Amino acid sequence: MFVLTGCLDDPPDPKQIFGFRDATDSDLSAEVEEAIDVANAALELDGRFVLRPMWRPGRPQQALQQVPVYLLRRPNAAIDAGTATPDMLRAFRAELARTVSLSGFGNCAETDPCAAAMYAGTQMGRAATEVYNGSTAMDAAAAEINCRCVMLIEDNLRQFKLIFGPSDQYGQAFAPLSGYVAWLALHEAGHLNRTFRLVPGAPWAELYRRTQSGLAERQQEEMRADAYAASLLGRACFAQVPQRLHAIAAQACYGLTMQAAQLWLYEAFDKTDGGLRRHYLNDGRTHPNVLMRLLAANVVMMDGRGKSAELLTKFLEKREVVAQRLPKSPNL
């Protein structure tokens, strides 16, 4: 998904510019519409924006800034090396089932080189991270068409559902697709709200500031938009708001937490230098480290409650260890 900055009275059609096709006939459309309803319910707390699915009939709400949403399909989308498949997921589950503590590695920490001998790596960690990279890869190019809108790309959403959806333990979607889409839509609305500034709660203010260390301006903007989305979800789920809003937003709040948990699980089975770099460092990406973003967003959403601050603290500590051991990442 991409945010397109700028504003025109008659915004250009991204399908024509990028060659995408309409995907409103997708079997994912019901979940996407549910996500938009969730995001719009949370956006009521800000009172500035409303997401407008371009395939739905009806008149726009004139009092709010309209954010057009498109559900699109790439023509002849190719399967690349980073794309997950059902076979990859089955292989990962088999590896997970047979994993045991090996003798001789009792004193081997996760960030030590010896860990790579235990967990030589799976393809699932890279594929999971690429879901998020795919949702942001064309930000710069999309901005050139000067239109404030959201583009949801069908194959990227399908990858998320394949990778993050299954859960043998709970018998339901581990991280629901609707929660992922709602989170991304709120993130993009955060880019449009240029006046939003996060004021961290006192107990976790310094912890959150550590996530900003060394980030470029573009990366700080991504964290700002994350914080906007997380703060709205936190208010919708945990503040004194109408019970209707609690009920609507609950799955999106749950999904945000589960995304971080599932991404950590996949990455836990790759302790190679490449896996550790992807798991903990920015590694030259235009956006901050994916897991750090999700953990930091959880701290904002939870206002530091529960284990949210503890998990982010542990991540940042290991991140510093990895940065010292591996060649320095240019954007750490």
Rank of each mutant, 00 (worst) to 15 (best):
R48D: 12
G234V: 01
D303Y: 12
F174T: 03
M138G: 07
N107R: 10
L311H: 14
G82E: 04
A309V: 06
Y170L: 06
Y266T: 06
A247D: 11
P200Y: 09
E95C: 10
Q243E: 14
L263R: 00
T286K: 13
F18Y: 03
Y228C: 03
E310I: 11
D27R: 12
A97L: 12
P166A: 04
A97M: 14
H187Y: 13
G6Q: 01
A120R: 15
S167Y: 05
V150I: 11
E44I: 11
P203R: 10
Y254C: 03
F49Q: 00
P330W: 07
S135V: 08
A225S: 11
E44S: 14
A78P: 04
N156C: 09
M138S: 10
R293S: 00
D87P: 09
L256Q: 07
M223K: 09
D80M: 10
D13Y: 01
Y228V: 06
T195H: 15
Q324L: 10
P57L: 14
Q61N: 15
M124W: 04
N331W: 15
M124N: 08
D303H: 15
L51S: 02
D112E: 06
G134C: 03
L316E: 07
G179F: 01
A97E: 12
L96Q: 14
G234W: 00
K314V: 14
K328L: 15
G106D: 13
G274V: 07
L8K: 07
R325W: 05
D10A: 12
R197D: 14
Y180I: 00
D139S: 12
D37A: 12
E110K: 13
F18A: 03
Y70L: 06
G58T: 04
R235I: 03
F105H: 06
D303I: 11
T257C: 11
T195L: 15
I153T: 07
A249M: 04
R305L: 06
A260Y: 05
F164T: 04
L256Y: 03
T313I: 14
D27N: 13
L281F: 05
R325A: 06
L316R: 03
F238G: 04
D139Q: 14
Y208F: 15
L51K: 02
L192N: 08
V300N: 01
Q324K: 13
L102A: 14
C108R: 04
T83R: 13
L207M: 09
S167H: 08
G275E: 02
S103E: 15
A261P: 05
D112F: 04
A250F: 05
K328H: 14
Q240Y: 07
